[in-house]
């Protein structure tokens, strides 16, 4: 299983990662963080993540702290 680790306290809700995920596994969240932003959420119930790390490369705030590939 491939997956990402998301630190929601770092996310500023620019949503650039939402556009680059080829599997559309990152969505705009509905719960605000301490910064008052609505950070993204990673939803992958069917294990579709390919571990490409494009979301992490795109993120300007290193809110995606790790990408793990199996």
């Amino acid at each position: 299983m491939n997956y990402i680790k998301l630190d929601k306290t770092r996310c500023k809700a620019c949503y650039l990662c939402v556009d680059v995920c080829p599997k559309k596994l990152i969505i705009k969240g509905s719960q605000p963080n301490s910064l008052g932003h609505f950070p993204v959420e990673f939803k992958d119930p069917d294990n579709k993540c390919i571990g490409c790390a494009m979301c992490a490369m795109r993120c300007p705030d290193i809110a995606i702290t790790e990408v793990v590939k199996n």
Binding site: A53, I62, I64, T65, E66, V67, V68, K69
Partner: peptide, 9 residues
Amino acid sequence: TTEKLVFES
């Protein structure tokens, strides 16, 4: 051990 970190800070 089977996992590989492909991105980290």
